[in-house]
């Protein structure tokens, strides 16, 4: 088919879809639609992981990002009842600054990508590195320390979130007792 293999076709289609959904996520006015486009982008990225034979990463991407984090995002958007027409218009200066900062980030990323051709190509498709067994072995032997540190970091974030959530009630109870 036009000199491309099936994998290349899939890669092209998935990449196009991922970029298209990402752009739509940025440009759409309604926050709910924006969140839904972001979920579609996550699915496309999970497809990329599947092409790299990293099924575990693909499913975890869906479970964690699409299934848990974005549900909470949607939850908040729906409860706050954000609407496109109520979105405050930003000042011109703010928008200019945002554009400049975003452009600089783009600049940095393009600069970082320029060195990419020097990297060793990892064999995709036939690689076994992304299977659960291999991933688990590597995580619990070679990268045990960073893995544990990351989990402690998550625990700290969890405790912090509970603290922030609880503070309100404490203040209220103090006010009422005073």
């Amino acid at each position: 088919m036009l000199g491309f293999t099936i994998t290349q076709w899939l890669f092209g289609t998935l990449s196009l879809m991922a970029i298209m959904f990402a752009l739509m996520m940025v440009f759409t006015r309604s926050p709910v639609n924006s969140a839904l486009y972001l979920i579609m982008t996550f699915f496309c990225i999970a497809g990329h992981y599947l092409l790299l034979n990293a099924q575990f990463l693909a499913v975890v991407q869906i479970v964690v990002y699409a299934g848990a984090i974005m549900v909470l995002f949607l939850y908040i958007i729906m409860l706050m009842n954000l609407n496109a027409d109520e979105e405050p218009r930003k000042h011109v200066l703010t928008r200019a600054i945002a554009a400049i900062i975003g452009g600089m980030l783009l600049f940095v990323m393009i600069g970082a990508l320029r060195g990419a051709e020097q990297l060793q190509m990892v064999q995709g498709g036939a690689s076994q590195i992304g299977l659960v067994k291999n991933l688990g072995k590597v995580l619990f032997t070679e990268f045990l320390f960073p893995f544990e540190i990351a989990s402690v970091l998550l625990l700290a974030a969890l405790v912090g979130a509970i603290m922030i959530g609880k503070r309100d009630t404490n203040i209220n109870s103090k006010e009422t007792t005073n």
């Binding site: 099924q55 499913v59 659960v132």
Partner: peptide
């Protein structure tokens, strides 16, 4: 027969909530 069948089940279960959420909103 995918080698992550059990996680696939969890993944689909976690996606399942979108139908209700989107419909309800």
């Amino acid at each position: 027969d995918i080698n992550i069948g059990v996680i696939y089940l969890l993944g689909v279960a976690s996606i399942g909530v979108y139908g209700i959420m989107i419909g309800g909103w």
